[in-house]
Structures are given as structure tokens and as C-alpha cells.
Measured scan of single mutants.
Amino acid sequence: TLATPAVRRLAMENNIKLSEVVGSGKDGRILKEDILNYLEKQTG
């Protein structure tokens, strides 16, 4: 899974598996926005 260290840390802090997040960046890269959108969906 393609993600920057900052995105990986954000995911780890929120107990998110990067494999569950759909990346919207180039080549499927997971962006910070993708993590935040995933969190919004989870908290509903």
C-alpha cells in the first residue's frame, strides 16, 4: 500500500488498517484526505 509516513502514522493513531482505505492519489496512493474521509464514514 502506497502511503507517506505521515499518513501511516495518522492511520496507526486511529487504529485504521491501510488495506481498508481506498487511495485516491496517483497509482492508488493513500492521502491524508482519504484517512479523514474514512474516519468520517466510521463515526457516521
Score class of each variant (00 low, 15 high):
T1L: 02
T1W: 03
T1A: 07
T1N: 13
L2S: 06
L2T: 11
L2N: 09
L2R: 05
L2C: 07
L2A: 05
A3P: 04
A3V: 12
A3W: 06
T4K: 05
T4H: 07
T4G: 04
T4R: 03
T4A: 05
T4E: 04
P5R: 08
P5G: 06
P5C: 09
P5A: 14
A6L: 07
A6R: 09
A6D: 12
A6E: 12
A6C: 08
V7Y: 00
V7N: 01
V7G: 06
V7A: 15
V7F: 01
V7M: 05
V7D: 04
R8T: 10
R8G: 05
R8P: 00
R8A: 13
R9W: 06
R9H: 05
L10K: 06
L10W: 03
L10I: 08
A11D: 00
M12C: 03
M12V: 06
N14R: 10
N14S: 15
N15H: 08
N15V: 01
N15R: 08
N15D: 08
N15M: 06
N15G: 02
N15E: 10
I16N: 01
I16Q: 02
I16H: 02
I16C: 07
I16F: 00
K17S: 12
K17P: 14
K17A: 09
K17D: 14
K17M: 11
L18H: 05
L18S: 02
L18V: 05
S19A: 13
S19R: 10
E20T: 10
E20I: 02
E20A: 10
E20F: 04
E20W: 08
V21E: 03
V21P: 03
V21R: 01
V21W: 00
V21G: 02
V21N: 01
V21Y: 01
V22F: 05
V22M: 11
V22P: 14
V22W: 05
V22H: 15
G23N: 11
G23T: 03
G23R: 01
G23D: 01
G23V: 01
G23S: 06
S24L: 01
S24Q: 05
S24F: 00
S24T: 13
G25D: 03
G25C: 04
G25F: 00
G25K: 03
K26T: 11
K26H: 08
K26L: 08
K26V: 09
K26N: 12
K26M: 09
D27Y: 07
D27W: 04
D27M: 04
D27A: 07
D27G: 12
G28K: 04
G28W: 00
G28H: 06
G28D: 05
G28S: 04
G28F: 01
G28I: 00
R29T: 14
R29K: 13
R29M: 10
R29S: 11
R29N: 06
R29I: 09
R29L: 08
I30N: 01
I30A: 02
I30W: 00
I30G: 02
I30R: 01
I30V: 13
I30L: 05
I30S: 01
L31A: 05
L31W: 01
L31D: 05
L31K: 06
L31G: 06
K32E: 15
K32C: 06
K32G: 09
E33V: 11
E33G: 10
E33R: 15
E33W: 05
D34T: 00
D34P: 04
D34K: 00
I35T: 05
I35H: 04
I35V: 15
I35Y: 05
I35K: 06
I35L: 11
L36K: 10
L36D: 14
N37D: 13
N37Y: 04
N37S: 13
N37W: 08
Y38E: 13
Y38I: 11
Y38L: 13
Y38V: 13
Y38H: 11
L39P: 07
E40C: 12
E40V: 09
K41W: 07
K41P: 10
K41Q: 13
K41I: 09
Q42C: 12
Q42E: 14
Q42I: 06
Q42V: 11
Q42R: 15
T43D: 15
T43M: 09
G44H: 14
G44T: 13
